[in-house]
Design a protein around this nucleic acid. Structure first.
Lengths: 238, 238
DNA sequence: AGCTCCCGTATTGTTGACAGCTTTTCCGGA
DNA sequence: TCCGGAAAAGCTGTCAACAATACGGGAGCT
């Protein structure tokens, strides 16, 4: 139910301390939209819902706040992070930098098997894409899978946590909320192909450049969408 | 005692909940070297030292682990993160990507006042540099100040926390431990000048390129140092 | 009527104690 | 002397209760 291909790529672990379990379950609840963005969180209520005491819960809250999925205010409680177009655009700037670098490193380091797996991933996407046309959900999930699999292939323990533990889940949250820019599905797949090709040629700098342009294009399409909605008055400026 | 110029740039706050205070004090203790890298942390001991109960302390531990200053293992406790050359090199790769982007954004967005302040900062560094030749400590602190002031000037709430809340303190920790690569002081200052010049010309892409080369050069000098120590057998490979 | 002040209520912040796991130590045997 | 195992000590994980603060409503004053 969670991912399209293979297993999870993050730091999941269904076992361990209660604080850990609550951390994962709560994160999933946020990303899945069970707890709406901006919604206030009641500690006693959540503790009851998860069947734990407030101790482990507060530990989980602290961790999630550190990852910017929650915002805590002293004596006032925690709220699910609130979303906005400007924040999403900022996120894409960070992704452009980080994933570009990750792509360069992955191009230089990834094993042939990893590269083949990446290509297989794209084959699957291509095969599935025409099936439910416009159903961008699967496609988007696949897109995230592709991006963060490259992050892992960078084998850089400084980049991976930032991309896979922080930005990845924020992106999932945004995808769930600001749906359906699946318009770029077709051309995105083509760009993914080009990236993998560059990686197979072991051309790190070029792979980085392609990845950066790929993400920058996605950002621009979001900026356009934002500008349009601004003109239509659909969304408050801020 | 803490910074060379102006006030702190992070998220400090001496007041608030106990958990918050402990978080800041413990982070400072780690970065300052009071708690040595790799050292095990006893919750009762630390709780006693800070005069708080274990509840708030554990919240602080969870947050610090999220920022990779601690490593926690179930039923086994927390350890201060252990340092290594490869990790430091990975860190520089991340910085190259992130600070490059931050520099580009700052070049496009920073107010003339901010740019002037940046130049003033460099003037101060230049004035102080020859005073205590080789005393790279102040110089290094100044270097970090410069870099993370640019991060703030990017005005990107996705980049700033990563650079200023996570990488900044890790860098301080490494500087304290793997001392004295102040050899690059002179040329680093020149490169800083060039970066600010590009920013003043509002040439975002060029400023980014300069920043990336600047950080890449620093990384390479560290890689050389590492290779030399490897040959000398000073440090275990891993 | 509207504003201010005050009090009750609910929620967050914090504590101390209990349960389970890990490690250490100590003792007996080879 | 060295090794193995069991008990004990210490630590981490968890809980329920206490303290302090913020929110909501009503009375009283202007």
């Amino acid at each position: 139910m969670s991912t399209v291909e293979l297993g999870e790529l993050g730091d999941e672990a269904t076992t361990g301390t209660l604080a850990e379990q609550v951390f994962f379950r709560l994160r999933e609840a946020i990303v899945a939209g069970e707890l709406q963005p901006g919604e206030r969180i009641s500690e006693p209520a959540l503790a009851g819902r998860f069947g734990v005491s407030r101790g482990p819960l507060r530990e989980a809250l602290a961790r999630l706040a550190e990852r910017h999925l929650l915002e805590r205010t002293t004596h006032l409680g925690a709220r699910v992070v609130s979303l906005s177009f400007p924040k999403l655009i900022d996120l894409y700037h960070a992704r452009e930098a980080l994933e570009g670098m990750a792509c360069r490193l992955a191009a230089e380091r990834a094993t042939p098997e990893t590269l083949a797996a990446l290509e297989g991933l794209l084959d699957n996407h291509e095969r599935r894409a025409p099936l439910h046309e416009g159903a961008a959900y699967v496609q988007d999930q696949g897109d995230l899978d592709f991006h963060f699999r490259i992050a892992q292939a960078s084998e850089n323990p400084a980049l991976i946590p930032i991309l896979c533990d922080q930005l990845y889940h924020l992106m999932r949250l945004y995808r769930r909320t600001f749906v359906a820019q699946g318009v770029r599905s077709k051309t995105a797949l083509r760009e993914h192909r080009a990236i993998v090709d560059a990686m197979k040629e072991r051309d790190g700098p070029f792979a980085e450049q392609l990845m950066r342009r790929h993400i920058a294009k996605a950002r621009k399409s979001i900026e356009d969408l934002y500008a349009a909605q601004l003109r239509a008055g659909d969304v408050k400026e801020e």
